[in-house]
Nucleic acid binder design. Structure first.
Length: 804
DNA sequence: AGCACGCCGACT
DNA sequence: GTCGGCGTGCTC
């Protein structure tokens, strides 16, 4: 019996979301393994597509004639059996295509690049041969399109004069450098030196170097250059067979220029020691457990992570540490590199694709045992995981917004179970879901109640902005905040100012007629972008110039609205003449590395105020920051999102922790229009537990998470009536399979009812336990395939984080 | 996704 | 009478 392979092909469609069976050519039988990428012929024209081998088995009696695998793209499996299995599970759970899941697990460069070529296989008309093919025997598809000869060529293909050649290319390129090795003995070099002309100084130098090397050592061209040996000298040396040249695979090292001083473990306080020993126990006994490590800012969670990771490494296993993208600062990386040196691989969006691939290979080859990275690092190819840590577990960025819409926390727990290792969720302000599970005993709660140095939590003042307005202060700054800022400037201390941008955008409105510039395709207002001096739609990318006068009433009083960081900066500069401000927002941090640069400048005290949006709330640790101001604490509170109080509480608590990290006492000023709101009041008192109780009570009353799970079905269509009709139909399809406990909300039009010229509707299903729901949704997707092809788009979001 | 097959309108 | 439109269905 011959062997066949089950392969998931790179054709992201519902009908092809299943394994296809291919014959394994004899030459590949000994090398092919599950987890390898392959090139296979697919479909009528047998175009070549990339695929993943998921299974190898004996061929069973089958009527369909199988095609054979074209070639292998890897010499080793790039996905382990674990990841293959995880991908299958994720596809089902998140209603995504399996191929998408596998592609998400791997660096972008490993995604195939496809190209089509036209090859001449028989005589073709002379004119075509010379004008189009220019005498060569092949032509790229794009070139044929450009020359407008595709129809002619397709005709020729039917006559078997030319053929269409499909090419699958791997974008993954291993970087190599040229190195040289001595080829002769010590004595031989001695002899050569004798015969060198006295003015051949460069050559003599080269001989000296070669002579000092033994056969085990090698030098790169760059290293030789540093000694003063130029490429031309090397070339002549090679010609005379003084040395040999070879290529060595290297890693692009994004931290090449940084040095890391080795740090030692710090002594743990009682809370930390307790947490450590609980986690250590599961490591030692190869047990899976989920811990919620809840510790106030400054309570030393990171030290607990570092020491548990150390144990895992000593045991010969790997560690996985997830950090939100914006918290993945050089400071953070430094702490890990300093403790574990080269054993750390870092994955984040700031790396080039090549760099990401190299970090991935380091992990795959088990050269790096510790992986620190953002969301997608949860798929790091560690073969033997000893611990998975998710820091700031409440962060919403752990949920991917595109397909596959996975939550890193769920994937972590899946992998933790697979590897029988602990999963640690760390946060100062855990998500209600996690804390509720810990309270129920599903997770083990570990608390760090004290700050490491016993510094007190900073004093938080909440300023009622309505009172300020009553007193005639209509600026964005309360008197208290302004006085506070002045005081810091005088004392040469630093301040951080946070602008809560959630629910805000700068738009253009006419003061005379109230006209707001909207996107022509979508029902939302366009946003002002000062950097490009244009108006942009955030949904479809539509762009137009800023209107100088109102398009409706021709009035010139068309003004910009919204509280942008630029506006705050401008006002601040006017109010505080001697303030030096570093502004950090999407505009100033767009360029690669600029984020770090700005933070470094602030750390070097080149400015006394750091002004920014959410991105400054994380992980910054500057001893000279003694004042943190929140300009608008409650902009998010008004949003129709059941998590808005939770998010506000988390944000305020987090920024509060940024103040007074050093020996100097810190102060926090929160400006608000509803200061009595419990999210603000409990944040002021640093009281998570009370917030938790109050919020849980509300969630219970309103029947939301964590009491209920959520599933969102979105339907869109060009025609508003069709979209409305379809979603009602689909809801009716699901309804009978639900138990009485499930609650259906909607269907309703989405808050942004129209984008890309399509109308959107959604329905939310709240449920506690619905065994059949997932299966029923899959049924819905399968049965509506035709309608989907005809323009009714359905999208399912399992446990959505946003639904406004 | 992409390609072929199939059944209805404007062309030599 | 044919060329070609894109609706429909299948891909190991």
């Amino acid at each position: 019996m011959s062997l066949v392979a089950n392969i998931i092909v790179d054709v992201p469609a519902l009908q092809t979301n299943k394994p296809y069976t291919y014959i394994i050519p004899e030459v590949l039988t000994d090398v092919i393994q599950p987890g390898m990428r392959v090139v296979v012929p697919f479909g009528k024209g047998s175009r070549k597509v990339q695929g993943f081998v998921v299974e190898i088995k004996e061929q069973t009696a089958t009527e369909i004639k199988l095609k054979a695998i074209e070639s292998l793209m890897d010499s080793y499996p790039v996905l382990t059996m674990e990841l293959l299995q995880l991908g299958e599970f994720l596809a089902y759970q998140t209603f995504s295509f399996q191929i998408k899941c596998y592609q998400t697990m791997l660096p972008a460069v490993m995604r195939a690049k496809y190209s089509k070529k036209i090859k001449i296989i028989d005589e073709i008309p002379e004119t075509l041969l010379w004008d189009i093919f220019k005498g060569k025997d092949e032509l790229s598809w794009e070139e044929a399109e450009r020359q407008n000869v595709l129809t002619d060529l397709i005709q020729l293909e039917k006559e078997d004069k030319v053929e269409i050649d499909y090419d699958v290319k791997d974008k993954a390129v291993v970087k190599k450098i040229k190195k040289i090795k001595p080829a002769l003995s010590f004595e031989a070099y001695e002899e050569i030196r004798e015969y060198l002309r006295s003015n051949a100084k460069k050559q003599k130098l080269f001989i000296d170097i070669l002579q000092s090397m033994d056969s085990e050592t090698s030098l790169s061209y760059a290293e030789l250059k540093a000694f003063g040996v130029t490429p031309s000298t090397i070339r002549s040396g090679l010609e005379k067979n003084w040395c040999d040249v070879f290529h060595e695979e290297i890693y692009r090292d994004p931290f090449a220029s940084s040095t890391f001083e080795k740090t030692r473990p710090l002594p743990l306080n009682q809370d930390q020691a307790h947490a450590f020993s609980k986690i250590y126990q599961t490591i030692k006994e190869d047990e899976h457990d989920v811990f919620l490590l809840q510790g106030v800012t400054g309570s030393g969670k990171t030290e607990v992570y570092l020491q548990t990771i150390k144990e895992v490494i000593d045991k010969g296993e790997g560690a996985l540490m997830l950090v939100p993208e914006i918290a993945l600062t050089p400071q953070m990386v430094q702490r890990f590199k300093s403790r574990f040196g080269d054993e750390v691989a870092v994955l984040h969006s700031g790396l080039s694709n090549g760099e990401k691939y190299d970090e991935w290979r380091k992990i795959e080859k088990e050269e790096a045992k510790v992986v620190v990275g953002a969301r997608s690092s949860i798929f790091a190819p560690i073969k033997n995981i000893g611990i998975i840590i998710i820091d700031e577990e409440h962060e919403t960025s752990y949920k991917q917004e595109e397909f596959p819409k996975y939550h890193a926390r769920d994937v972590a727990i899946w992998r933790g179970e697979y590897h029988k290792c602990p999963v640690v969720l760390g946060s100062a302000t855990p998500s209600l879901e996690s804390r509720a599970r810990a309270t129920k005993g599903v997770y083990s709660l570990l608390e760090l109640k004290h700050r490491v140095n016993d510094y007190p939590m900073p004093a938080v003042d909440v300023i009622d902005m309505r009172e300020e307005a009553k007193r005639g202060n209509h600026s964005m700054f309360s008197e208290a905040l302004l006085t506070g800022l002045k005081k810091r400037i005088d004392k040469q201390e630093q301040s951080v100012l946070l602008l809560n941008r959630r629910g805000f955008s700068s738009f253009v409105m006419c003061r005379d007629c109230g006209f707001v510039l909207e996107c022509p395709n979508c029902d939302i207002s366009q946003t002002l972008h000062m950097d490009t001096r244009t108006m942009k739609c955030h949904y479809c990318g539509h762009e137009e110039s800023i209107p100088k006068k109102c398009p409706k009433c021709d009035s010139r009083s068309i003004r910009y609205y919204g509280t942008g960081t630029q506006k705050v900066e401008k006002e601040l500069n006017e109010l505080l003449i001697d303030a030096s401000i570093i502004r950090m927002d999407v505009d100033t941090t767009r360029k690669k590395g600029s984020h770090e640069k700005l933070l470094n400048r602030f750390a070097n005290k080149e400015a006394n105020i750091l002004l920014g949006t959410q991105m400054i709330a994380k992980g910054l640790d500057y001893p000279d920051v003694t004042l943190v101001g929140v300009i608008n604490a409650d902009t998010a509170l008004g949003l129709p999102d059941f998590r808005s109080a939770e998010k506000t509480f988390q944000l305020l608590t987090q920024v509060s922790g940024r103040s007074g990290r050093g020996e100097k006492e810190g102060q926090v000023i929160i400006q608000s229009y509803n200061p009595e709101h419990y999210a603000i009041q409990y944040a002021k008192q640093h009281d998570y537990d009370s917030f938790y109780k109050r919020e849980m009570h509300l969630r219970h009353l309103s029947e939301y998470s964590p009491y209920y799970y959520l599933l969102k079905i979105s339907v869109s269509h060009e025609n508003e009536m069709t979209a409305a009709k379809k979603i009602r139909q689909y809801t009716d399809f699901i309804r009978p399979s639900l138990s009485e406990k499930a609650i259906i909300l909607g269907p309703t039009p989405k808050s942004i009812a129209r984008t890309h010229n399509r109308y959107h509707f959604q329905v939310l299903i709240k449920y506690k336990q619905e065994k059949e729901l997932t299966e029923k949704i899959h049924q819905l997707l399968t049965e509506t395939q035709k309608e989907q092809a005809r323009g009714t788009f359905i999208s399912i979001d399992y446990q959505p984080l946003d639904f406004i």
